[in-house]
Amino acid sequence: MTEKALPHEWTLSPERGSLTLIKFGVRTALRLGRSRARLFLYPICFYFLLSSAGARRASRAYLARALGRRPLVSDIFRHFLTFASCLLDRVFLLNERTDDYDIRAEGEEILQGIEAAGGGCLLFGAHFGSFEVARATGRRRAELQISLLMYEENAKKVRDALAAVNPRLAAEVIGLGQLDSMIIVAERLRRGHFIGLLADRHFEGKNLARHEFLGAPAAFPRGPFQLAAMLRRPVVMMFGVYRGGNHYDLVFETLAPALETRPADVEAWVDEVMRRYVERLEHYCREAPFNWFNFYDFWR
């Protein structure tokens, strides 16, 4: 499936809003402050609940699996509201206003170990909760450098959006699909950077593997895992789970340790690490169901 086929499913995505609107929204939010800006989320989400049938359907289908029961309209509203809350918080977090948040980190010693050993690692997230919480936390420790790897079409939009929110951050985005994208990744890892990417979504519809996810097989991209096999750096799963109010839980789990040599059977290694990733993703979907932010038919 191409990205073009998804537009209506992406209307809730920040990457799709016009830049002027983003700038206006960011300025307004920062001026109002978090608690007053949050009041606007209710009418906005209500509007989306009424107007965005595609997102509503996707939410219902997902929630039925994650909650294990028929979702109510209030569940879908809560799903939208959680997404909107994370988006709004992103504005504040990107502007380094982390003091207002209660962020608890779990498994941070994994990162400290990697930092001490040197050589960086891969951080695998998902469209789940807030990746931004982790980045903001990382930036509090000035020496830790995080780059984000994403599809070039998105990279351009995200770079522009980041430049609008906080210009210093734009350079941290690496676009895929350039001749030297991976050479840049390898080089930054060597210098000890952490490279973040979201390993749950794909665009081209090729090089996929289906894994059992919340009761039915869903397609996940193999690319990130093949990259990990080649780079041989530790793979750490990272989610910023929104718990309501101003509370986030930042969780880190090792998916694969650093490798001395390339795996003898790369395909088997890829399958195994993918399976672990999907399993942990499923675990968090059941545990914090409203944090899932893929508003399209994920099991297509």
Partner: peptide
């Protein structure tokens, strides 16, 4: 890269290594 031999950016990294 790309249309010639059909290599992608992961292939280019392999070549560089």
């Amino acid at each position: 890269y790309g249309e010639g031999l059909g290599l992608d950016s992961i292939d280019m990294l392999e070549i560089a290594l």
